[in-house]
Design a protein around this nucleic acid. Structure first.
Ligand SMILES: [Mn+2]
Ligand SMILES: [Mn+2]
Ligand SMILES: [Zn+2]
Ligand SMILES: [Zn+2]
Lengths: 137, 137
DNA sequence: TCTAACTTTGCAACCCAGTTGCAACAACTT
DNA sequence: AAGTTGTTGCAACTGGGTTGCAAAGTTAGA
């Protein structure tokens, strides 16, 4: 069933190599964002640099977005179909302090903020830290 | 005039060693947040680990707060006098994409956000990226 | 005052995420 | 087939952050 994977890659102008298919497969199955070191562990066999470049390629082509949640490692998650990685597509991210998993809160746009005119605004990163439902029990 | 410096250290229960006086002096003169590597460069002579532990001590005693602005290095800035590093003291930070300087926007509290009840909220990090007035020209 | 306990400092080494150079390899082009 | 281009694997390196340990400094008790 690589068809959907291939379609997705094709729709973003990314050549569907074996490596890329596999990485996209993993990203698609993920419910939370994943970091490069985590990805490495999922592919005992693959090379770090290749995975790194695969993620960079995906990001450049707006198939995924990167998330700096302050945990020390940048994480990546699939963009939504409608996403163009523009400011209006930005959403809040949630980092669980217990399990260290990071969730895209796609339904929570980042609140507007009116800075003094001496600052021109380009983008906003908003990360909420707390405990996720799995860890709350 | 080390008196004010010493008072500040004393008021936060930090023993006023020479190193700490010097670091606090630098922090007090700073208009923007400063990172450990930057601090190292300011003190050609001092040891990285000592500076590191000095910052950690200051942070633990709530004399400074750390800022992860996504630039790759954590920065530090003096807390305001009234600050207790509680959620209500949290404020927005601004990172200039040109000069890489980070500003505490102390007058801009982080907007409230109502998460689904499946997430318990502990803290929020909000970093605005753009261009500062110095770099706008 | 002398000494023991504790704290701070300096140095070295280490960890780890991220990144790059380069050569081998694979895929397309003419 | 030969050339061109893009992709991969390996190794090495960078830089921020962190720790172990012993020396130096400080504090407090006998
Ligand atoms: Mn996201
Ligand atoms: Mn601040
Ligand atoms: Zn969790
Ligand atoms: Zn600037």
């Amino acid at each position: 069933m690589g068809t959907e994977i291939d379609n997705k890659l094709h729709s973003k102008d990314i050549k569907p190599t074996a490596m890329r298919q596999l990485v996209l497969q993993v990203l698609t199955e993920q419910k939370t964002a994943i970091s490069l070191p985590e990805l490495e562990r999922k592919f005992e066999k693959a090379d770090k640099a290749t995975l790194y470049r695969t993620l960079k390629t995906f990001e450049k082509h707006k198939l995924i977005h990167s998330i700096d949640d302050g945990s020390g490692t940048v994480k990546y998650a699939l963009c939504q179909d409608t996403c163009e990685c523009q400011p209006e597509d930005l959403h809040v991210h949630f980092l669980c302090a217990k399990c260290n998993q990071t969730f895209c809160l796609n339904d929570f746009p980042i609140p507007q903020i009116n800075l003094p005119s001496s600052f021109s605004l380009e983008s906003v990163n908003m990360v909420v830290k707390g405990v996720c439902s799995n860890c709350m029990i």
